[in-house]
């Protein structure tokens, strides 16, 4: 029924990927993105960037300050700190990513279930409150101590600590979304809870979730460093940014570079993820806003 009323009905010219365009224009997102990509590439291509071995010890070149051959100097075992930082990025970033993914999955599930199945809400959220009552680091220490010091247990321990925060954020956005009329439209057509969650709630909670996960990623890298410093991080000799710092702390005064460079890497990584998160938040958050 193409009636006369629609004669002038033209579609505005198409803009593809409006979100990506706006992200690309967002300054702090761009800076964060470059930092994170550079660190990730450094971690992946570590063997191509440095010809040294991160773990082999050479007594002749202990405690060399930064110089042309050893950019970040060497440590008390004669290992190249630059190489160790490169390989350390693998472990630290893996832990960050692992914690973000694991706490994201579990937290999202808990948050969405709480929001959609109101009869489970009280139970799930009290559980989350219980977890949240423990300081994250203390909880991780306890769990890491119980499960033994390896990467897997570290990721699980830190994830448990960050699940409640993620669950709360997802629940809060899902509660807003489920009151919107398109959810009622689906219900009128007889949509199941599963369909409502999958097609309507989840896609509309992704914005705040992604922002939260960039921050979790950054926290996890910091937490790994803190735990290593306390001696319950990933076990040596495999380097992580945290345990490089931990090993260098006895020489902190004379050989500052052993701690300084991995510390710089941690700062850079958390800064990068935070900038990335800020950018995502700016672009995604008032996400029902129509762009001009």
């Amino acid at each position: 029924m193409a009636d006369a009323t629609t004669a002038g009905e033209l579609l505005a010219p198409r803009r593809r990927f409006p979100v990506l365009r706006r992200l690309a224009r967002h300054r702090s997102f761009r800076i964060g993105f470059v930092i994170v990509v550079v660190l990730t590439l450094a971690a992946i291509f570590a063997p191509l960037i440095s010809s040294f071995d991160p773990t082999s010890m050479r007594a002749r070149i202990r405690f060399r300050p930064p110089q042309a051959a050893y950019w970040f100097g060497t440590d008390n075992f004669g290992r190249d700190v630059f190489t160790r930082c490169l390989y350390g990025a693998r472990l630290s970033l893996t832990i960050g990513l692992g914690v973000a993914v694991l706490s994201g999955l579990v937290g999202t599930a808990a948050g969405i279930i709480s929001a959609q199945f109101r009869q489970l809400d009280a139970m799930i959220m009290r559980l989350m409150d219980g977890l949240m009552a423990f300081p994250a680091i203390i909880l991780a220490i306890g769990l890491a101590a119980a499960m033994g010091p390896n990467i897997g247990s570290l990721i699980v321990a830190l994830s448990v600590a960050y699940i409640p925060r993620t669950a709360r954020i997802v629940r809060a956005s899902a509660l807003v979304v489920r009151e919107l009329e398109f959810v009622d439209a689906a219900r009128v057509s007889g949509a199941s809870s599963l369909r409502i969650i999958w097609k309507h709630l989840l896609p509309n909670c992704m914005g705040p979730l992604l922002v939260q996960l960039t921050f979790v990623f950054a926290y996890a890298i910091l937490a790994e460093a803190a735990l290593s410093f306390l001696g319950i991080g990933p076990p040596p000799p495999a380097p992580s940014w945290g345990n490089i710092i931990a090993e260098g702390r006895d020489q902190a005064v004379d050989s500052w570079w052993i701690m300084f460079f991995p510390g710089l890497a941690i700062s850079l990584a958390t800064l990068g993820m935070n900038l990335l998160g800020d950018g995502l938040r700016d672009v995604l958050d008032p996400r029902l806003k129509v762009e001009t």
């Binding site: 006369a4 009323t5 629609t6 505005a12 001009t292």
Partner: peptide
């Protein structure tokens, strides 16, 4: 009685 078409986008 109607006015055909839509209100134009501010940017157009």
């Amino acid at each position: 009685s109607t006015i055909p078409g839509s209100i134009p986008d501010p940017g157009r």
